[in-house]
Nucleic acid binder design. Sequence first.
DNA 1: TAACTATATAACCATTTAGTTATATAATCA
DNA 2: TGATTATATAACTAAATGGTTATATAGTTA
Lengths: 119, 119
Amino acid sequence: MADLSPRMLANVADYFKVLSEVSRLQILCELRTGGKNVSEIMQATGMGQANLSKHLKVLTQAGIVSRQPRGVNVFYEITDPVCLEICEIVCQQLIAQISQQYQQWQGIHSLGEAPQKAL
Amino acid sequence: MADLSPRMLANVADYFKVLSEVSRLQILCELRTGGKNVSEIMQATGMGQANLSKHLKVLTQAGIVSRQPRGVNVFYEITDPVCLEICEIVCQQLIAQISQQYQQWQGIHSLGEAPQKAL
DNA sequence: TAACTATATAACCATTTAGTTATATAATCA
DNA sequence: TGATTATATAACTAAATGGTTATATAGTTA
């Protein structure tokens, strides 16, 4: 954290809040491989139309995706690669946590028992 | 995002949710330079005692900080450097966004006007 | 053991927000 | 222009959550 002003902390918190909903992460997952219009995202995620529209608005206002009307459709695209970057980092961190917990569990249960069995 | 299972998405969302509150970011800021006990964090942040205790529980359960009772006091410490790493990345991203917006604004307002004045 | 201090928890309130339903807007086509 | 389709918005409900106050717990000291 380069800047520690309350203002900056609030902005960082807001950014994380946008990424703290499964529905919005789903949308970003679908857009990873390229932009899509609303109907395509709706079909891919199975979300309701109004709900999807609201989440897309949140992502757009956060500057994470861009909105481009194209005739009848509206095309959304990820404009902030950082969001995917930090998702990736968090994924790896969570996997590391779980792996670490398992190793601790294994260590506890191998005391005096047959440790090779678990492998 | 390496894994895209709904389970993993939910875990990622939960991780971001922990970081999506100013109070918890404040706590992490205070712990950046080293562990502190509750009283020290309370004084540094000005948070209420019960409120602080709840936030520390959330951070602990997320595996981001560790809890170590030491006599009467309880010592908290960051155990997950990834949380600071991604905060830093988001900070830089937000600064880049604002800088970019300013340059766009500047571009618009320099059309036909004296562009050097703004500098 | 009693008093004191540090921390955690319970109960409560107010606010926020995700999802749904219904409606509005805007573009296309007949 | 009217009908149709795609997207956005308004209104509402239910659930989650941050902050506060009061109380409980646990370690320390007299």
